[in-house]
Structures are given as structure tokens and as C-alpha cells.
Amino acid sequence: MSVLDIVATAMIAMGLFFFLGGAIGILRFPDFYSRLHPAGKLDTMGQFAAMIGMAIYLLNDLSLGSVLTALKILLIVVFVFITSPTATHAIVDAGVRAGLAPWTKESREGRR
């Protein structure tokens, strides 16, 4: 294994770790608004790390084709970084307009 392979493996492992955190966060958090925090952003970070790792792995052989493929992966990363806040905002906006009340500590203690 070359140095690039090790770096790529570390990046992919970090991305998977963030993905795992996102999935568990979606399951554990109490309401819709707080679930958006892991869903919208830990996933974005995981995608960023994993895709950068795969792009680094592709740079093992420096031919034009693999460099172009790495550039395409970078394009996906940029695209995700632009669209992910927009999608998160669209979901949160739908929730606000439908009148979902955010979960707060006071509401939980009041329910007890």
C-alpha cells in the first residue's frame, strides 16, 4: 500500500464514521427540527470526507482519465455543499409552514 492508499483509507473511514453518526442521530434525536441537524450536515461532512478519500485514491495513477474522474468527484462535492443547505432549508421551511412546534426542554418537562 502506498501513502496515498493509507490517506484514502483514513478519509473513507472518517466519512463512514460521520455517516454512522448521522444515522444514529436521526434515530435518537427527539423531534423533527433537531433530527435535521445530524441529517443535513453530518451526512454532508461524511460525503465530503469519503469522496475526497476516493478522489485521492484515484490519483494513484496520474493519467488524464483518472485526474478527470477525480475532478468530477470534486464537482459532486461542490454540488453537495451548495445544495445540502438548500435542501435542509426547504425541509425546515415546510415544517415551519405546516405549523410544527419545535421540541424544547420546557415542553418535555411540562409533559411529565
Binding site: K41, L42, P85, T88, V92
Partner: peptide, 9 residues
């Protein structure tokens, strides 16, 4: 929105 912990509503 990208910074976790905060979402612009």
C-alpha cells in the same frame, strides 16, 4: 446552515 448545531429557518 452548514455549521452543525444551527439551521437557518
Amino acid at each position: 446552515t452548514l455549521t452543525p448545531g444551527t439551521i437557518t429557518v
